[in-house]
């Protein structure tokens, strides 16, 4: 069991993701998680306000089931397959985070400074989570895909729109990480 309960190396995770993509195509669908956000809007009645959401969302049921499986997989991994919650980060990363106000980096998966219940219940903390989400959701649908649809499927398929999108992902990510995060905490 130890090979499962220890953290998985990149050369295990990458091929597993490729297998997941393969099987979604094999079963007649395609890998892309952010389109579920539009499905949520359609289910929630957004079609009453915007025609864009007037779709027959039932054709995307398979993807909602995939999401339900992902939640279940996250539960299984967290409660039965992970004896430790620590992340073995580069010591320089831990130091850099301490310098910008995020302590104990790597002692668990997520920083309390962003994800603890107390932070979520503070005005600033709540808006950081909400705005991060809005940028991900708006950006993914504007770009026409997220990490799964563009970085994995699109790049595998040698698509220029996906290459441009992934370059965009990195421009945004680098600006946030290097220039904005140091100002927040």
């Amino acid at each position: 069991m130890e090979f499962i309960t220890q953290p998985w190396a990149w050369y295990v995770a990458g091929p597993v993701i490729a297998i997941i993509m393969f099987f979604l195509f094999y079963f007649g669908e395609r890998f892309g998680v952010s389109s579920n956000l539009e499905t949520f809007c359609s289910i929630g009645g957004a079609g009453k306000f915007v025609d864009y959401f007037k779709i027959d969302w039932k054709q995307n049921t398979w993807n909602l089931v995939f999401v339900a499986g992902s939640i279940t997989g996250g539960f299984i991994a967290a409660y039965w397959l992970s004896p430790s919650d620590a992340v073995a980060l580069n010591p320089q990363t831990i130091q850099d985070l301490a310098d910008i106000g995020i302590a104990h980096a790597g002692s668990s998966y997520l920083p309390d400074e962003i994800f603890s219940i107390d932070t979520m219940l503070s005005l600033k903390g709540f808006f950081i989570l909400l705005i991060a989400g809005i940028m991900v959701g708006f950006g993914a649908r504007w770009a026409g895909g997220c990490t799964s649809g563009h970085a994995i499927v699109g790049l595998s398929n040698l698509e220029i729109p996906s290459l441009i999108s992934v370059i965009g992902f990195f421009i945004g990510g680098l600006i946030m990480t290097w220039y904005i995060l140091p100002l927040i905490f």
Binding site: G144, G168, F169, G173, M176
Partner: peptide, 17 residues
């Protein structure tokens, strides 16, 4: 679409992790 949407997504990705 790809570049601006991508940049906005990247900002959110790095903030939400």
């Amino acid at each position: 679409r790809n570049l601006l949407g991508g940049i906005l997504f990247g900002l959110g990705w790095a903030l939400a992790g």
